[in-house]
Simulated scan of single mutants.
Amino acid sequence: MSRTTFVVPGTHPCLPGHFPGRPLVPGVVILDHVIAAIETAHGALGPLRLPQVKFVQPLLPDETAEIALETTTTEAGPRWRFRVERDGVLLASGDVIATGGDVA
């Protein structure tokens, strides 16, 4: 299992509209970090599916989050199960599946 950390700075351009007065990091930004962590380990990915993603707690700007990735290989190709945590508290989890193309 690989692990990496990230921080979304309070100056990120998505935050003023999500939500005014109490900014939360949008789920799509968290998923972007998850995919970047997969690509760092395995190279550029082609098309992806995210058949299951669950957000259970918010991530606030300037908080450090950790991504844990578990890689498996299926007949259809590689699959990554991920968990995003802050200080051991689960924020998000799910699966990413490569649907085509070459994966290193």
Rank of each mutant, 00 (worst) to 15 (best):
L45G: 03
D102W: 12
Q52D: 11
E66C: 07
T72V: 15
G46D: 08
V28P: 01
T73I: 15
P61T: 06
P47G: 14
G43F: 08
G94A: 14
V29H: 00
L31I: 01
V96P: 10
D32E: 14
L45P: 05
V8N: 01
E39N: 04
V96E: 10
P16H: 05
P16S: 08
V84L: 01
T74V: 13
T64G: 04
D32A: 15
P13R: 07
L31C: 00
D87N: 09
P26K: 05
P9S: 11
I30Q: 02
P78N: 06
D102K: 14
D87S: 12
P13A: 09
V96C: 14
L91H: 04
P20Y: 08
T5I: 12
T5N: 15
G100T: 11
R86S: 14
V84N: 00
A104P: 15
Q57D: 12
R3M: 11
Q52A: 14
G100D: 13
E85Q: 12
V25L: 09
R83W: 00
S2I: 12
L90S: 04
P16V: 09
V56Q: 09
P51L: 15
L15V: 12
F55T: 03
V53Y: 02
Q57V: 06
T4C: 14
P23K: 06
P51M: 14
G21W: 06
T5V: 14
C14L: 13
R79Q: 11
I35K: 10
L60S: 12
V28C: 11
T99N: 11
P58T: 05
P16Q: 06
I67V: 15
V53F: 03
G10N: 03
T4S: 15
A68P: 02
A92P: 01
G94E: 10
G88V: 07
G10Y: 03
V25D: 06
G46M: 13
T64I: 14
R79E: 11
Q52Y: 06
E85F: 05
G101E: 11
L50Q: 08
F6W: 08
D87E: 13
A41N: 09
